[in-house]
């Protein structure tokens, strides 16, 4: 997923709010231009390799630019008009949203469940190792492991299900199973991150609360539902925000495991950008699709920002 991208971010919402606040340690006084010497190197690279491509991409999206020699002239909103009437674009956008829904729910719920369970038993380092390790693997490695697991004739998944009399399934080639299979792989790969966030949060809940509940005779399951889960709400919000944004950016594992197939059934929007831009070399059109994807991310971020801001009053 996502793990792929160079770098992302703790919740943007909180960060933006922080930006407005003065750091306590800053001594008020005269402006000191030498600050630019410190931020300079970062700002130059930031301007060159982030701000400039962002602006240039917007410009490209209004041109017919391509490597195949077509015109680089401004063509107004033609690319956007084409995108909005392009069924493949809509299908890819839908796949992205559908993947996000299918992956976010188990990635939050199962991570919470795992953390609740691990909190009850000894040997934390072992559980952390088991559930978190896959998170550190490159997407290529994860894809190789799972293509092999899902192999229709020789894979472990069909071999295991065969014990229960299930006929072999072509997990990655079957339209009704391909997306589910990719989601399962993603769950295996990335759950460790959410799991660690939950585990840390549980360990921060004051001990006395459990002791009081235990004295009242509350069972462990009751304790979980009455005390732990409500107290974890801020963590759940954080995990949800990060997970939705990460899932929307999915590309690697789908590209490697199904190449977007069968028949485009799993192709995410990032892969469509990649195909238009780097196999068709239509830079203008690919930029327009990029910006539609960006608009989706901004929209989701704004919604998240509004919701969390209201909650914090």
């Amino acid at each position: 997923m996502s793990t792929t991208t160079a770098m992302t971010t703790p919740a943007e919402g909180g960060a933006v709010r922080e930006a407005a606040a003065e750091p306590q340690s800053l001594r008020a006084g005269k402006k000191d231009w030498r600050g630019w010497l410190f931020v300079g190197p970062f700002v130059v690279l930031f301007a060159l390799f982030l701000v400039w491509p962002m602006i240039h991409g917007l410009y490209l999206s209004f041109t017919g630019e391509s490597l195949t020699g077509a015109n680089g002239q401004l063509i107004g909103f033609d690319n956007y008009a084409e995108a909005f009437s392009d069924p493949v674009m809509w299908h890819s956008l839908w796949n992205t949203v559908w993947f996000t829904v299918l992956s976010t729910i188990p990635l939050v719920v199962v991570a919470l469940g795992l953390a609740l369970l691990v909190h009850q038993v000894p040997g934390q380092w072992f559980w952390r190792l088991s559930f978190f390790m896959p998170y550190l693997l490159a997407s290529t490695v994860v894809a190789q492991f799972w293509i092999w697991m899902y192999n229709p004739q020789l894979g472990l998944v069909n071999d295991f299900l065969g014990n229960f009399g299930v006929e072999p399934i072509a997990w990655l080639q079957d339209e009704s199973w391909a997306m589910i299979s990719v989601v399962v792989t993603t769950l295996w790969w990335t759950i460790g991150f959410n799991f660690l966030l939950y585990l840390a949060a549980i360990q921060n809940i004051p001990e006395q609360q459990f002791e009081a509940a235990a004295l009242d005779g509350a069972s462990r399951i009751k304790q979980a539902f009455r005390i732990t889960i409500p107290q974890l709400w801020p963590t759940t919000v954080l995990v949800l925000i990060l997970q939705v944004l990460a899932s929307l950016k999915v590309f690697d594992q789908i590209y490697m495991m199904t190449n977007g197939g069968p028949a485009g059934a799993t192709r995410p929007i990032v892969q469509y950008v990649f195909e238009v831009g780097f196999t068709g070399y239509r830079f203008g059109y690919a930029s327009a699709i990029s910006y539609i994807f960006f608009a989706l991310i901004v929209l989701v971020s704004l919604v998240q920002f509004r919701i969390t801001n209201r909650r914090n009053g």
Partner: peptide
């Protein structure tokens, strides 16, 4: 506290919303 510190920091933080995937073409 240098000239332009606050808006510059705001721009950098705001850029967190940009997914690297959006930038691949340009």
């Amino acid at each position: 506290d240098f000239q332009g510190r606050r808006w510059l920091f705001f721009v950098i933080i705001a850029s967190l919303v940009i997914p690297p995937q959006v930038l691949i073409v340009p």
